[in-house]
Design a protein around this nucleic acid. Structure first.
Lengths: 244, 244
DNA sequence: TAGTGGTCTAGACCACTTG
DNA sequence: AAGTGGTCTAGACCACTAC
């Protein structure tokens, strides 16, 4: 079903190229829940008809979303909405190139008043945040502690139950419960000494070197949404990014 | 109307799409030195004529190289060969997003017989390599030590003089002297304790935590060429990737 | 066989930069 | 005004996957 406004792309939407407008409309449709993860989109020609453009233009819009990891295509089959990846990178055995599967566990979900995180999220200093702390295990051994923070106002109603329901995949929660597809920007790395609390949780000695990975994730429409910092022990596995 | 096979030799090498062949031929021309860094390529229509394809097909080939950072386009001006970036990431002041300029200095260039590096480069165990050690300074303070290794056989004639002539930018040497455009794959990260030698060079205490970044760089035609491992102190600046 | 993504063309027009 | 990249179309055909 095509809304009348679907066929007037040259109008008031700010003169972006048509393929960019197509991309935005598809993102909006995904965020609105029109197609779920794993579900097929209409064919390129159907989308072209719906948006009033040619197949090549639809295709260029889809290309961008495939490159961003939001969509996957299989020739002869269709175009599908990708599952939301968990964000925190991958654990690589030394020398290997294939990451090892990891499990994630929720340690805490609490309200805090943000300092550094609030600034990174472009909120006022001391704005109320929700802080989520998770533990990543590889082969049942502790690998990383991830602290994530989001605006309390924007994610009202977030609690431990909802996070566990989504297998502790925060990106999945943002999408299913709050209608936001979120993606990380380039992370930033440091090497630090383990503090007491981290050392205890990760099972390393005090002052052991830990890899610190800080990242800010943005909604696809723009604007920072999620601040996170991971601390990883890298004595057994190395850390690689590879994921949005 | 010309069939693709009329003008393009895609019978033997496994039928790649025309735009991929265009990409390869442009890479080959760049590596052969037909256009230098900063120089403009012929217009899209001229290239289309030269390769016997349409402008849209040339454009799609150029798109790929622009995405890889090999080319830059400016509307109304032309398409230009990008300068080769140095590889080892960027030093970021905490909280900032703009990296700080760094200077690179050559510490040594010597022949070694490779262990881990030879394996990563898909050479036989113990194959002769050239090892290049460089020091990166930020605001004149030591920031990172980079050890790189390449096949001695492939890069015969490499010496300290040639490296210094290129301002210690190894990628520039690979291109100008050996005709190879080289790009990094995803790096891998660890946190380690500083060994004696590194601690001395970087000016940190023994056992201080250092960020270790390992990467393998490949030629654009495929195949690993350069193995490298950096050790960075991250007490003053954080480390970000951002570059191919 | 029918429907999907994947490629390619020829031509048109727009937006930008330089003389 | 001329030349460049940037966008868009309509239609064609190919390659793959299902039924």
């Amino acid at each position: 079903m095509a809304f009348p406004s679907d066929r007037t792309p040259h109008g008031a939407l700010g003169r972006q190229p048509l393929y960019a407008q197509v991309r935005e409309r598809i993102v909006a449709a995904i965020e609105s829940g029109e197609w779920d993860a794993g579900e097929a989109l209409p064919s390129e020609f159907e989308l072209a008809d719906r948006f009033g453009v040619s197949q090549g233009t639809v295709r260029k819009g889809l290309d961008a979303l495939v490159a961003e990891g939001v969509l996957r295509r299989r020739q002869g089959l269709g175009t599908f909405v990708a599952a939301v990846d968990d964000d925190w990178g991958r654990a690589l055995p030394f020398g290997a190139r294939q990451p090892i599967e990891a499990t994630v566990e929720l340690l805490s979900c609490s309200r805090v008043n943000g300092g550094e995180a609030a600034e990174a999220l472009e909120l006022r200093p001391g704005a109320p945040l929700i802080s989520v702390v998770r533990l990543v295990r590889v082969l049942n051994e502790p690998f990383a502690v991830i602290e994530s923070a989001v605006s309390l106002e924007r994610f009202e109603g977030l609690d431990a139950r909802r996070i566990r329901q989504a297998d502790c995949n925060l990106r999945a929660v943002w999408w299913r419960e709050f209608g936001l597809r979120v993606q990380s920007r380039s992370p930033v790395f440091r090497a630090v000494r383990a503090a007491r609390e981290e050392a205890r949780i990760l099972g390393v000695s005090l002052d052991a070197p830990l890899l610190e990975v800080s990242a800010i994730a943005e909604a696809m429409g723009g604007g920072p949404v999620e601040w996170s910092v991971s601390r990883c022990r890298t004595d057994q596995y190395a850390y690689s990014v590879d994921g949005g």
